[in-house]
C-alpha cells in the first residue's frame, strides 16, 4: 500500500493514515484513488456539518446570521467544490481538483469567522481545514499536481508552510487560487 509513504508527505500523517485506512478502497488505491477517498471524507464532513448547522438554528437562534452564511458556504463545498474535485481527478486534470479542495478549507474558515470568536463549529471547522490541507498535500505527493511556488509567487499570503502545502490560516484567510489550462 502507498498510504504510509504518501501520508508522510502531508502535514498530518496520523490523520491522513486513519482517514485512508478507514476506507476499504485505501489499501489498493493509487494516488488519485487516495485523493478521491479524501474528497469523500470532505463530502461526509460537510454533510455532517450542515446537519449540525441545521440543528443549531433551533438551539442557538441568536446565531441565525452566521448560520445562514455557514449553510451557504458548506453547500458550496457539497455542490461545487466536491463535484469539481471528483470530476477533475477522474478526468486527469487534478489541478482543478486541487482548486476545489483548497476552496473547501477556505469556505470552512469563512464560516468560522462569522461567529466573532464564539463558534459552535470550531472543531468541525478545524477538521475540514485539516482534511483540506492533507488532501491538498496528496496532490503534491507523487506529483498528481507538481510542486508549485506558492510561497514565492504569492508573497502576501500568510503562509504556514508544512510540507509543500499552502495552508489556509484562520486569522487571515488567504489562499492561492489558480487555474490550469488545456
Amino acid at each position: 500500500s502507498i498510504i504510509e509513504p504518501t501520508c508522510k508527505e502531508t502535514p498530518d500523517f496520523n490523520l491522513c493514515v486513519s482517514l485512508l485506512n478507514s476506507d476499504p478502497r485505501g489499501s489498493s488505491a493509487d494516488t488519485s484513488g487516495l485523493a478521491l477517498i479524501l474528497i469523500d471524507k470532505i463530502k461526509g464532513l460537510a454533510t455532517k456539518t450542515l446537519n449540525e448547522i441545521n440543528g443549531l438554528y433551533k438551539k442557538r437562534p441568536e446565531l441565525k446570521r452566521a448560520l445562514d452564511e455557514c449553510s451557504r458556504r458548506y453547500k458550496t463545498i457539497l455542490n461545487a467544490d466536491v463535484p469539481e474535485a471528483i470530476e477533475a481527478i477522474s478526468k486527469g486534470v487534478p489541478k482543478f481538483g486541487e482548486d476545489g479542495v483548497i476552496d473547501a478549507g477556505v469556505e470552512a474558515s469563512v464560516c468560522q469567522g462569522g461567529f466573532n470568536g464564539s463558534s459552535p463549529l470550531t472543531s468541525l471547522t478545524k477538521s475540514m481545514q485539516k482534511i483540506s490541507n492533507v488532501t491538498r498535500a496528496i496532490f503534491y505527493s507523487n506529483s498528481i499536481v507538481k510542486e508549485e511556488a506558492c510561497g514565492s509567487s504569492w508573497p502576501s499570503l500568510a503562509l504556514n508552510i508544512d510540507s509543500k502545502a499552502c495552508v489556509v490560516s484562520l486569522q487571515n484567510i488567504q489562499f492561492n487560487r489558480g487555474r490550469t489550462c488545456w
Binding site: T76, A80, D81, E84, D99, E107, G178, C181
Partner: peptide, 14 residues
C-alpha cells in the same frame, strides 16, 4: 487570455 477569479467559489456560485 483567460483571466480567472480571485474570490471564493461560494462567491462564484452566488
Amino acid at each position: 487570455s483567460w483571466i480567472g477569479e480571485s474570490d471564493s467559489e461560494a462567491s462564484d456560485v452566488q
